[in-house]
Design a protein around this nucleic acid. Structure first.
Lengths: 336, 336
DNA sequence: TTGAAAGCGCTACCAG
DNA sequence: CTGGTAGCGCTTTCAA
């Protein structure tokens, strides 16, 4: 690969001049500019971003850590960060770290080594203290999808409890009174918060959420199918189910229909997330929209602000908290 | 951020020594090693990958360019590259470049500037010559999902024509004789190749593919719905449809069912790609498995070989060509 | 087993 | 408008 020196030599100018035309700095004569550009073209010269980052002390690079690219939810999160990167002429680095604290830590470390200026991190397994420490070390690090009080202005998160309540309100407004709920067995806060929010609003309205009508499963199609089967096997009646996520909800619909129930006529099914899947399901899934892409972009922008120490307006915490909203499609309807 | 010098100073050793313990080079006494490690810990020192890349002349970085992260197909491609990167302790850089040649070129250039050692590129719009030139400049660049004769050993691609034929054979074996086909209106080779392959095999078997029973649409749910509506409006009879991709196929099923046709009982629907979606559809979609993740991993490995000039065994071209295979699920069945 | 120093490719400052 | 040069953080000889 040709370097700036090669260009300088062939163009008969100094490296300083080449640098100037590369970054089109003001004071270069048209003539030399043309000349240098030509040489660069001939040589197929590309500036070395590493060298530049080294001297500039910034890499124009934005990192994101997510558990898994194949999960459409996280792909959308990455997509948001990528868009923010592109908008700021930065390059996206991506690390995946799932399952355990170790791999999450490793993913973050790798990105820090690469000198990412900003870092949008999705981490569920690293403990609070460790993340707080990282956040202090790295001003451009923002946490997404998780709330830690001590660094609240560096977090962008969803109010899952409120989401559960919103779900309940939707179903209640459709005059349902007999509810079931499917949750995830994964050990993170979200499922519990959603279920509790749902339950609290149901009870506030004077109804009950039967303990045995709360099912659990892996947060995917099959998990939804199995959990629904279990719900059905209680023999208890319910006319509406609130499901942890869209994938499980689609599994629920499938099992329900296989057992002779029509969705939504006999039973309404409400998902969560509003991923692509929900629009592809038949009936199209009613769900709660999780604005993950917008949240990702916001996270990136907060980080960007932090590093360019723009007056560093400490964000109002409330603005970093998001609330999912109902997207009513076809899988929920009036109870009759 | 603390640098190697800070560590050296505080540990009372030279930077050379620190470097040795960071890279755990052999000849360092246990004692200094412990000492230096402690200082690094206290300081929260992280090596600067840019500086390292600069002197080592390699970045331990793998780049991938795809059109769009939100498309599950491309997410899976990126996922494959990411896995290869992780397996080789490299970091993943991702650039998106869709729509036009310009943005594809820009995406690739960005990655080259970042000094990615290997580069897996999905590009449909850049012309052959330009890609060939890039491939010569950059030994670690491998093209995925496209075949260019001159650099065949740097390409990993799918035989779309053969895929169309496979689709036909599947439907033929199910005793269908009246066919329709839905293609994509996008201006790339793939749709045409698939349709032509399909047609050729149908005709070989002595049947016809009615020109008016070949529909076109955007390669998404809605495109499939609209195209199917058009097909239906011809009033002509068909018992099997071969659809360009899974998203459109699901749209087709939806429209078919809305018009009173049962899938697969009245009409069989066959998709292409075998993305996640196909398992979430009801009936579950029969489709052709496009091994994009494996192809991505292979592409990364070819690139890796090329840069570490491992005897540089020129790959057998045939090995770089992949053929989709039928995944029979529920949307296709015996014609009766 | 350790240290000194050159140099990777680039930017930015200071001179001219 | 242009050139010379220090130095970004690191690895890697070469000496000690």
């Amino acid at each position: 690969m040709p370097t700036i020196k090669d260009v300088a030599r062939l163009a008969g100018v100094s490296v300083a001049t080449v640098s100037r035309v590369v970054n089109n700095a003001p004071k270069v004569s048209e003539k030399t500019k043309r000349n240098v550009n030509k040489v660069m073209d001939d040589l197929g010269y590309t500036p070395n971003a590493n060298a530049r980052a080294l001297v500039m002390q910034k890499s124009m690079t934005m990192g994101v850590v997510i558990p898994d690219l194949t999960d459409p939810f996280f792909a959308l999160l990455a997509n948001g960060v990528e868009e923010a990167a592109r908008a700021n002429k930065m390059q996206l680095l991506l690390s995946t770290g799932m399952i355990d604290a170790d791999s999450e830590r490793k993913a973050i470390t790798l990105l820090i080594e690469q000198q990412c200026d900003v870092l949008v991190v999705h981490s569920k397994k690293l403990c609070d203290e460790e993340i707080i420490k990282l956040a202090y070390r790295k001003p451009g690090l923002v946490l997404i999808d998780r709330y830690i009080k001590e660094i609240a202005d560096r977090c962008v998160w969803l109010d899952n409890f409120e989401g559960g309540k919103t779900a309940a309100r939707h179903l209640l407004s459709l005059q349902h009174t007999e509810f079931a709920c499917i949750s995830s067995k994964y050990e993170i806060d979200d499922p519990e918060l959603r279920t509790n929010g749902f339950k609290s609003e149901i009870e506030k309205a004077g109804y009950l959420l039967d303990e045995t009508l709360v099912g659990y499963g892996e947060p995917n199609l099959q998990g939804g199918e199995i959990a629904t089967q279990t719900l059905l096997s209680t023999g208890k009646k319910f006319t509406a189910i609130f499901v942890y996520n869209d994938a499980m909800a689609i599994g629920a619909i499938s099992t329900l229909e296989n057992n002779g129930f029509k969705v939504p006529n006999d039973i309404s099914v409400l998902g969560f997330d509003d991923v692509l899947l929900s629009r592809y399901s038949r009936p199209k899934l009613s769900t709660l929209h999780y604005p993950i892409k917008e949240m990702a972009i916001q996270a990136a922008n907060i980080a960007l602000d932090a590093v360019s120490n723009n007056i560093k307006v400490p964000q109002k915490r409330e603005e970093n908290k998001h609330v999912p909203i109902i997207v009513k499609r076809e899988s929920t309807s009036l109870n009759k």
